[in-house]
């Protein structure tokens, strides 16, 4: 079953065409990584899918119906964690449920479970200002997961993290997302291959330019080794070459 089906999508900001006739689809539970140069339109694509922008042309179907802001089938993690500083960690994660009219006590139980799953179960009563960047990333992920979305949009969620924290989250990500399909924007070719079933490159023409299979299907322990195998290295080389042509276009 397709969770996301994008057809002939175009978007312009005034005179500036960002996406042009882009098509892509993501199946249930599938993980797709999106690479592309700065300003190529990756965040714009996520905003369109999340219904935060209205496309100039084209269709976006999410679980069969048109994209719209706030649909519970979609969870989004922005590059900055965007936690509300006046709420505790737990209350940041209950927020989506409170907005949906759920009682605080049942929202608490759900949020606690989500925080435990992303490894932030010990932070419940802390303030966002008192936790590390990696912990904030986990909390933002828990907030995006708490409505049990079938599609998770991740916009460079780990960009601000140190290499070790980031590697750990990359390894855990397939388990953390709990079966949701994911569309991950990243600038890191190795990260893209590690966490995704398919890696896409957004070209300078505003459409998908290249698709390379990722390594997510491999068992967790073998993934990093596969990255360095001749086949993994070849995939990395193709992606780097595509990115290189994009950024010189």
């Amino acid at each position: 079953m397709q969770i996301l089906q994008v057809d002939g999508l175009s978007h312009s900001f005034g005179e500036r065409d960002v996406l042009r006739n882009l098509s892509l689809s993501i199946a249930a539970g599938e993980s797709v990584a999106l690479l592309g140069a700065n300003g190529s339109g990756k965040s714009t694509l996520l905003r369109l899918v999340a219904g935060l922008l209205t496309p100039t042309a084209g269709q976006i179907a999410l679980v069969g119906s048109a994209a719209a802001a706030g649909r519970p089938e979609v969870g989004i993690v922005f590059q900055e964690s965007r936690l509300l500083p006046w709420r505790t960690v737990l209350r940041n994660v209950t927020l989506p449920l409170e907005l949906a009219g759920e009682s605080l006590s049942s929202a608490r139980a759900t949020a606690e479970a989500a925080l435990k799953r992303v490894g932030a179960g010990g932070l419940l009563d802390r303030n966002p200002a008192e936790i590390s960047g990696g912990e904030r990333g986990r909390v933002a992920l828990a907030r995006a997961l708490v409505r049990r979305p079938s599609l998770l949009l991740l916009d460079e969620p780990f960009a601000a993290l140190d290499a070790i924290t980031r590697a750990r989250l990359d390894d855990e990500l397939p388990e953390l997302v709990a079966g949701a399909a994911t569309l991950l924007v990243t600038h890191d070719v190795a990260e893209a291959l590690l966490v995704a079933d398919r890696v896409l490159v957004l070209g300078s023409d505003g459409a998908i330019q290249l698709e390379v299979p990722g390594l997510r299907g491999q068992p967790a322990t073998g993934r990093r080794a596969a990255l360095l195998s001749p086949d993994g290295a070849a995939r990395q080389t193709r992606l780097y070459a595509a990115l290189d042509s994009v950024s010189h276009a």
């Binding site: 802001a69 706030g70 922005f78 989506p96 907005l99 949906a100």
Partner: peptide, 15 residues
Amino acid sequence: GTLELMRSLGATRWQ
């Protein structure tokens, strides 16, 4: 960014 987050969570104007 905070307001965009609220929209992504389905908040109404009042919320």
